[in-house]
Design a protein around this nucleic acid. Structure first.
Length: 386
RNA sequence: GGCGGGUUGGCGGAGAGGUUACGCAGCGGAUUGCAAAUCCGUGUAGACCGGUUCGAUUCCGGUACCCGCCUCCA
């Protein structure tokens, strides 16, 4: 059997991947906050983990892999958009407007990511469907002394977790020294973070032992991964920008709530996307969505091909030139595979390259038959790693 | 300030301690009514300074530069 090797952010080394249970390999990836169209940067983790998902299914069998990716549908940006619509005179309730916003955004997300040839995860839980589990976990953390309530907020007591900072390689003291964080007066310690916060009447809220409120950002992933995958699972993925504080906080919450378990064994982070050498941002005018590209006539497979041309652990630079070259290359590959009979199994060299820490660039490079590699990697269609 | 990633030929981008990467672009040629496509051939590398070694672009150390994170942005 192929041995997959992955760079584990925990150890900062490439390690052999050995699942807890080969009959049920489990992966959790942080999904989008559904407040707007997915921008191009959002597509990178989707494609990176799509390749990993396909590889896992190839190695362990389709029925033996569970991939969970959440939708964060509790968020101030969503609230802001709903309030904006309300302000424009929409007569419906805030809750209805929020629901409308998240529904349409999820539909867009599905359509856009489908266009990139990404398989849908096995489960796509929404945060709002797990509020009860979050409340239960928070209550448990309070009971165990890892969290405290202050002025309607519940805060995680960072100092109560010995290994805080291990994933991102920081010490609590260093972080405080360089902190640009605004310290709320009710915090025992500047690093403590919110598990639950109060909502006024203009915001969505749920009843809890601490009053009407809404969850903090990090608790949803801890609660949902526990509910769907258990206290220990194999792989946790996401963008490197989430490593701190989001993933650090997830670990703290989950490890303290379930001290007997290991939470995620392998942490895989993808590097960021840039556009023409610069960070994509609205102020630089180089910000665009996946849908923008699709509407301009850039095929999803071209986007996928360009993305996978760079190893996930390196910054990926999206350039007009790469887009053009990818179109040329794919057109030629299409001509090559035209009329070819799909192979029953992917080339061993392809699997080997991908098993080597998802070396998609190396896999695309060569060393094996062009005809078979073209579709397998790029379009994920009939010849895909399944 | 703290933490992390990177630096290969015109551009993108791999593997390997010693042998041609590959692709695109360029150049020469074949084919072609023209063009496109296709085919053949071909040049240009490994940021800088040290170290290990018979030999390093590949291992080790340092320097420079670029980028990101530290702000509920993937």
């Amino acid at each position: 059997m192929t041995t997959i090797r992955l760079r584990n952010s925990k150890s900062r080394k490439v390690e052999e991947f050995h699942p807890i249970d080969p009959e049920n390999v489990q992966m959790y990836v942080c999904g989008p906050t559904v407040y707007d169209r997915a921008h191009l940067g959002n597509a990178r983790p989707v494609l990176v983990f799509d390749v990993l998902y396909r590889l896992l299914r190839h190695v362990y069998g389709e029925r033996h892999v569970t991939y969970v990716r959440n939708f964060t549908d509790v968020d101030d940006k969503i609230n802001a958009e709903a309030q904006r619509r309300k302000g424009l005179g929409d007569p419906r309730s805030l809750e209805a407007l929020i629901a409308e916003r998240t529904e349409e955004t999820i539909a867009w997300y599905h359509a856009d990511m489908d266009a990139l040839g990404a398989l849908r995860p096995d489960q796509e839980p929404r945060a709002t469907a797990f509020i009860g589990q979050m409340i239960a976990m928070i209550a448990d953390l309070i009971a165990k002394g890892h969290a405290y309530e202050k002025e309607g907020h519940v805060l995680f007591r960072v100092r109560s977790y010995q290994n805080y900072g291990a994933l991102s390689g920081r010490s609590v003291d260093d972080m405080i020294a360089g902190a640009r964080v605004e310290v709320a007066p009710f915090k025992e310690d500047p690093m403590d973070f919110v598990l639950w916060k109060p909502s006024d009447e203009d915001l969505p809220g749920w009843d809890s032992p601490w009053g009407r409120g809404r969850p903090g950002w990090h608790i949803e992933c801890s609660a949902m991964s526990y509910e769907l995958l258990g206290a220990s699972f194999d792989i946790h993925g996401g963008g490197i920008d989430l490593q701190f504080p989001h993933h650090e906080n997830e670990i703290a919450q989950s490890a303290c709530a379930h001290p007997e378990a290991g939470f995620a064994n392998y942490w895989v982070h993808n590097e960021m996307l840039q556009v023409e050498g610069k960070k994509m941002s609205k102020s630089l005018g180089n910000f665009f969505t996946v849908r923008d590209l699709l509407d301009q006539g850039v095929p999803g497979e071209v986007i996928r091909f360009v993305m996978l041309g760079t190893h996930y652990g390196k910054p990926m630079d999206w350039t007009e030139r790469k887009r053009e070259e990818a179109e040329t290359t794919l057109r030629k590959w299409r001509a090559l595979v035209d009329g070819a009979v799909p192979a029953a199994h992917p080339a061993a060299e392809l699997v080997e390259a991908l098993a080597d820490d998802l070396n998609t660039a190396g896999a695309i490079a060569d060393k094996f038959d062009k005809k078979s590699r073209a579709k397998m990697i790029v379009s994920g269609s009939s010849l895909s790693l399944t």
